[in-house]
Amino acid sequence: MSKVIANIRLFFQGAVLSYIALFAWLRPSTYIATKVVGPLAQILFFTLMGKFGTSGESADFYIIGNAIQITALSGIYGVTFSLAGDRWNGTLPYLFGTPANRMTMFLGRAVIHIIDGMFGVLIGFTWGVTLLGLDLSNTDPWALILVIAVTTFSTSGLGLMLGSLSLITRNVMFINNTAYFLLLVLSGSNIAIDRLPSALQAISNVLPLTRGIASARAIIDGATFRDVRPAMLEEIGIGIIYIMFGYVLFRWIEVLAKRRGTLEAM
């Protein structure tokens, strides 16, 4: 069997099984509820808070920002958990004892969460349109879907990097919560970027999601994909950079653990 096909199989099998392993404790009904009600809660909460709060942004600003931000739930929590799961299960020595391609093993953990994240965002938009009167009549749906896909990819890239980190720290939840909170504050989902101090704007600029949210707002406002293409290319680049950092960290952890004898201790 050719190496390529073997790797493709490993990629998807790892994807599906690591996803099942993560959610196996949920019944399908609970799972759907989490996936459908979760996005609604996030959008309602921030939209109402934003609308009745002090800031002068429109409701659409919050609806779109939070609908896209939903992708970080799968991209950050989902992806890190599927890597941290190997630490909890004690499977790392067994994984690192196989001849499997490490890149395939690593990337496979993110795939289903990307699909899952896109699904969450679409549900978020559905709530926005049906309950909060978001107007999509001026929107090119394919351009919006493309923006969602790219943003989900880049956010999952950050998730992969945090996932590698989660293999060497006991504080997975702390890392995840910090990352999610930073995105909530700095990605422009709830606070317009130009209101942030410039030091923080610099951070916004290297985070995933920031360009995705801005592009989604532009598309819904009637822009074409061509208008947001540069921002989307940057967003892909940001995702790739995080994945590369994450992968280098993942390999480094393996090498170091073999030198120091800490494979089980992780």
């Binding site: 190496k3 299960n89 499997a100």
Partner: peptide, 25 residues
């Protein structure tokens, strides 16, 4: 007992490790 995916079935554990070892499906 460690080193298995506790939330997967025995068969799914074996399937995943088979692909990690590039065993033909």
């Amino acid at each position: 007992e460690r080193g298995l995916y506790w939330r997967l079935s025995g068969i799914d554990n074996l399937r995943y490790f088979a692909s990690l070892y590039h065993v033909d499906p």
